[in-house]
């Protein structure tokens, strides 16, 4: 029971649908949703990857298919090797992944966070609530179609919102911070600049409301 160096081959011989995944460092595999739990359990019990380090997801953009990929990182506390598992979500609008809470209680909060920030649901998760944003927040902020500045929503507390007239407004992007643009574009467009350029040293600042 050791975390072999060639974990990919070991998994491929055991699970037919597992394929190697290009990676910059640790061994990594792609696998379908149906095999996730079996592979995680096999890694934990047979190959000594007993430590669930992290669960997260990547949004590949509104146009992309598959749009969401869920990623697990495991570590072996005895052999100190990592392995990365990746699963493409079948649906672009309602991404679902299986929950690992039955295998590691640690998965609970990681999955809640992934649901909160990216909107990936974990089927049969015992307590899938938001964890970082407040209950009732309507968006998933780490999705690529959500702007960094945010979208206006009321404050979580209605009484305080009435009292102060404050709401969760888009953050001002004028004058900085200089943020970069991602995607396939030429470098001139991608370079960091203030997102909002409604007023500059040449154009006057519009009167505030």
């Amino acid at each position: 029971m050791t975390a072999t160096a060639d974990v990919t081959a070991a998994l491929q011989s055991k699970f037919s649908q597992v394929t190697p995944r290009p990676s910059g460092d640790h061994p990594a595999i792609n696998l379908p949703a149906s095999e996730v739990l079996a592979v995680l359990k096999y890694l934990r019990d047979e190959l000594a990857y007993d430590f669930l380090v992290d669960i997260t997801a990547v949004d590949w953009g509104v146009e992309a298919t598959p749009r969401f990929t869920v990623i697990w990182h495991l570590l072996s506390t005895t052999d100190h090797q990592y392995v990365r598992l990746a699963m493409d979500c079948a649906s672009n609008s309602e991404p679902v992944a299986p929950t690992a809470t039955g295998l590691w209680p640690a998965a609970n909060w990681h999955e809640r966070e992934t649901y909160d920030l990216l909107g990936v649901k974990f089927a049969e998760h015992p307590d899938l609530r938001r964890i970082l944003m407040w209950d009732g927040y309507p968006y998933h902020p780490l999705r690529k179609d959500f702007p960094l500045a945010g979208i206006e929503v009321p404050l979580p507390d209605i009484e305080v919102a009435d009292l102060t007239g404050a709401s969760a407004k888009p953050a001002p992007m004028m004058g900085g911070p200089f943020v970069a643009s991602t995607g396939e574009m030429n470098l001139t467009d991608a370079e960091p600049r203030a997102k909002d350029e409604s007023w500059t040293e040449f154009r006057e600042k519009p009167a505030s409301e």
Binding site: P22, S23, G24, D25, H26, A28, V53, D54, T56, V58, I71, H73, L75, Y82, R84, A180, S181, T182, E184, L187, A190
Partner: peptide, 25 residues
């Protein structure tokens, strides 16, 4: 490419998972 690195900081393992499509961001 994608990399994951963890370092032993005072509170425990601080990990960064970076998914890069190339470029500066």
């Amino acid at each position: 490419g994608e990399v994951y690195f963890e370092a032993e900081v005072p509170k425990g393992l601080l990990g960064f998972f970076i998914e890069s499509k190339g470029g500066g961001v």
